[in-house]
């Protein structure tokens, strides 16, 4: 398979995020909820324009890829997720970067798991 020349490749952004929830959520459940939320908020056409894809998800943090001019839409999709398989969640976008490496190093390094039920002010 030939690689596309760089000028024709889809431009992307990578969103580093954390999931704030009472119980841990599974990757498959998060993917299902992500696409159903994108479908209901933006429709099939809008969701395809966003080109959302969940790359890494481990513990409570992960990276989502989206189209470079649709970061706001993608943020809105993430904000509109309220439950994952019955567990109430907040998806909190920590930062946006042009590369996976950048997103991971800048925003995911040293992020601790946050659970509102056992934290204290």
């Amino acid at each position: 398979m030939k690689l596309l020349p760089p000028t024709l490749r889809a431009r992307t952004r990578y969103l580093a995020f954390e999931v704030i929830s009472q119980d841990p959520v599974r990757r498959e459940d998060l993917i299902r909820e992500l696409f159903s939320s994108a479908g209901s908020l933006l429709g099939d056409v809008g969701a395809s324009e966003c080109a959302i894809r969940l790359l890494a998800f481990e513990g409570s943090t992960g990276v989502i890829r989206c189209a470079h001019d649709r970061t706001d839409r993608t943020r809105a999709v993430l904000a509109s997720i309220s439950t994952v398989k019955g567990t109430r969640v907040i998806i909190h976008v920590l930062g946006i970067s042009g590369t996976v490496r950048g997103a991971t190093i800048k925003y995911l390094a040293g992020v601790d798991v946050f659970n509102p039920k056992d934290s204290h002010i």
Partner: peptide, 18 residues
């Protein structure tokens, strides 16, 4: 209505952009 209903400021801005 609960702590899980809150969203970060940038997320609220993205929703408002809709």
């Amino acid at each position: 209505r609960s702590c899980f209903d809150m969203r970060a400021p940038r997320e609220l801005a993205a929703l408002a952009a809709l």
